[in-house]
Amino acid sequence: MSQTVSMTVNGRAVSVTVDQPQMPLLYALRNDIGVTGPHFGCGLGQCGACTVHVEGEAVRSCQMPVGEAAGKRITTLEGLGTPEHPHPVQAAFIAEQAVQCGYCTNGMIMQSAAFLTKTPRPTEVQVREELANNICRCGTHPRVVAAVLRAARG
């Protein structure tokens, strides 16, 4: 039975009507709310492409039923920063040119941004460990690590 779920996405109150509350949040974001920063990569929680912040925590939106997002504060890549006011991690990704196809980039940035709020001065090893479950097939890894460390330096 269809059901309406309300949440805050990038500071905006939104409601979506879904047939099944078990539908992953990712599809609501991409198709109903119109934010395409988070990507579908595996739908299995294995790659990180779909990562968003839920109440400030990095969450894989392909694994979170939209029903569980009710009342929650969601931030996506679009809401993290803008060209005028970039998040330090976004600015660092540009400075390090840490993107190739960019399909993984959403996950890399969202995971790192949440990580840096808890671990503001990580070591290189900590960054690598934090991103160990984020896949990149284009081989941007060294630049991603450099970007996260650059963002941490401020």
Partner: peptide, 10 residues
């Protein structure tokens, strides 16, 4: 690269 800013801001 010209595409990177858009990719970084979603």
């Amino acid at each position: 690269r010209v595409d990177i800013p858009d990719k970084v801001f979603g």
